[in-house]
Simulated scan of single mutants.
Amino acid sequence: MFGELEHELELHVPASEAWDLFGTLRIGQLVAKELPHLFQSVELTEGDGGVGTVLKLTFAPGVPGPRGYKEKFTKIDNENRIKEAEVVEGGYLELGFTLFRVRFEVKEKGEDSSIIKSIIEYELKEENASNASLVSIQPLATIAELANTYLNKNKPSKQPN
């Protein structure tokens, strides 16, 4: 069984600024600091932020779904501003999922705006099909909202000519 969930949010910053956050480890650091009700911890266990980097995510008590898992960055496309990570240990894999992938795409919308598209793709063994209800786009929507607030609060000021 295959499934996909999507969320889009307009960010009021250029795509390059949004990608400077989403395309790096900075998004994980921001999430760990600002969303303690969602994530108990986001730990770098391997790598430097490039393809092959592994993060250990531990969710806060009370968050539905798995308690935590390790994810590996499998794609970072700086030209097209796409970053993908797949669960490689624990979490959804223990619940019958054969694939659980998160993708962020930053698209240019205008000179001072962009779109962050968050996508979850998953594959699930038929005998575990009922576990599809555990998949929620809400955490990614919350991360996008946090990023929007953070980016707007920390915009570089434009100097008059």
Results as ranks from 00 to 15, higher is better:
K153D: 15
E126G: 08
N128H: 14
S136C: 03
K109N: 11
P156W: 07
F73W: 07
E8R: 13
L11V: 00
A132C: 02
G52K: 11
L35F: 09
T98G: 03
E34T: 01
G28E: 08
A132G: 05
M1Y: 11
Q138V: 14
A132M: 05
R103C: 13
L134C: 08
E17C: 09
E10R: 12
S136K: 10
E79C: 07
E108H: 12
L38D: 01
Q40E: 15
P160E: 12
S16K: 13
Y122V: 06
E145A: 12
R26G: 12
E71D: 13
E105R: 15
V13D: 06
F22W: 04
V13F: 09
P14V: 04
V102I: 12
G47R: 00
N161H: 10
H12I: 02
K72A: 02
S133T: 10
L5I: 01
I76Q: 15
F39V: 12
N78T: 13
K75F: 10
N80H: 14
P156Y: 06
W19Y: 07
V13S: 11
L35S: 09
P160H: 04
E71P: 00
E17F: 08
N148Q: 08
I115F: 11
K109W: 02
P36F: 05
P14D: 07
N152I: 01
T24Y: 04
A144Q: 00
G23D: 13
L151V: 02
L30N: 01
E89R: 07
F97E: 07
E86L: 09
P64W: 11
V51F: 06
E10G: 02
F104K: 05
L44R: 08
D20M: 09
K117C: 08
A132R: 06
L30Y: 03
T24C: 11
H12V: 02
N154A: 12
L124N: 02
T74S: 14
P160K: 14
